[in-house]
Design a protein around this nucleic acid. Structure first.
Lengths: 217, 217
DNA sequence: TTCATATTAATGAATAATCATTCAGTAACC
DNA sequence: GGTTACTGAATGATTATTCATTAATATGAA
């Protein structure tokens, strides 16, 4: 019987190797060696190299989804929920750089080739953000003119870019906490000083409660 | 004399091919064919495949830097400057999907391997954002507690993620303008409704005017 | 329990492609 | 006739994947 144990060992090895060398430069033999397994063994557990990447990705994102959902279940203030999401995502990426790297790779390299190849836990992940925003709008805590489908991309993109920089291992002088606070700060309050009183956007937000419109994909 | 013309032809071809297939799946012969040139000719103009990617990247980003700087030169309200940056970046990525794709690729795949290989016009590019923010802080238009080095990453990341989605060519129901407004809106004002009056961040911004601290790399 | 056989898992060397790069030769131009 | 630009077939390296072989484990009859 093919053991779940070995399956896991391969996944862990692959995560490590992909993170270090990137998908295209990772050799199957690297993964095999890292997993202390023969090259051929890998093909008993996975169809091909892509399959490994996708499995790693889905599985790791899945864990994140579960964790964050659990955290959020205990909170019902949308403002805090956004804080929790941001903090948790960044903490996780700081802790698990391999995962951060694999997300980067998967999102830009493979997607294009093997799109919608299987169910997408990643969509589920970022839709957590838009769901929180919608809740906040229902409670009138968030601005009604924010489009949740765009906001979710902006927030995820910001987090992902910060994680990318961490992975370049240039030394940063900012602490984790400081960074988390900043990002929360920017997204909740914006960068403008006393926005309501001093400044009108060049183009005013036009639609209110645009829930009818389909989401930004 | 090796013609600048041919050099350009190769660059244009390479941009197209990289965008379509990604760096690792692009063959030199694809680029050669697209440029209507022999495979070997490419090596008269570039050292190797990486060199082509880097050249494409630096050159295209360089153009963007020049354009945006020109636009900004005519404006001195930092709020408008941020608007201009966001709008221009998104417009450009929408117009030139190949470029958007090459940015995605270069930032995640190569960086790791060939870091600091040559001068970085990309840094120059995103430092435009932090410079604007600093100016805004000097004029007391932007909140003093924003760290420009983190804000620049958040803003660029958001824009980049949106461009990524556009490149997946899933149909989006949002117009360019709508998206631009939203993003400006989010970053200037935040998503919170009447932020000053209703909500205190869980953790308050601590330092004021942290200009002394080194920037987020 | 013991041993023979069957079934399943694992191995890693061999295969078969794939391309980046080179370079001997040709063309274009001065 | 000499210099420079260009060509594209040949080279040589690399590696995902396969598969014949071996090891491990299960089964069950005596």
């Amino acid at each position: 019987m093919k053991s779940a144990d070995k399956h896991n060992k391969i996944i862990r090895a692959a995560t490590k190797v992909f993170a270090k060398k990137g998908f295209f430069n990772a050799r199957i033999s690297d993964i095999a060696k890292e997993a202390k397994v023969a090259d051929g063994t890998i093909y008993l557990y996975f169809n091909n190299k892509f399959d490994i990447l996708l499995t790693v990705f889905e599985q790791e994102i899945g864990k994140l989804v579960d964790q964050i959902k659990a955290l959020l279940a205990e909170e019902d203030d949308p403002r805090r929920m956004i804080e929790i999401f941001i903090a948790k995502h960044l903490q996780e990426m700081k802790k698990n750089k391999n995962l951060a790297e694999v997300i980067q790779i998967e999102l830009r390299q493979t997607n294009k080739l093997v799109r919608d190849y299987r169910n997408n836990r990643f969509s589920e992940y970022i839709n957590i953000i838009s769901t929180i925003i919608k809740q906040g709008q229902d409670k009138n805590v968030f601005r009604q003119d924010i489009l949740p489908g765009i906001a979710k991309r902006a927030i995820f993109g910001a987090l992902d870019e910060i994680a990318r920089i961490w992975n370049l291992d240039l030394v940063s002088e900012y602490s984790m906490d400081e960074t988390v606070q900043q990002v929360i700060n920017i997204f909740l309050l914006g960068i403008l000083n006393e926005p309501g009183r001093q400044y009108r956007l060049k183009v005013k937000p036009s639609r209110v409660n645009p829930r009818k419109k389909p989401e930004f994909p």
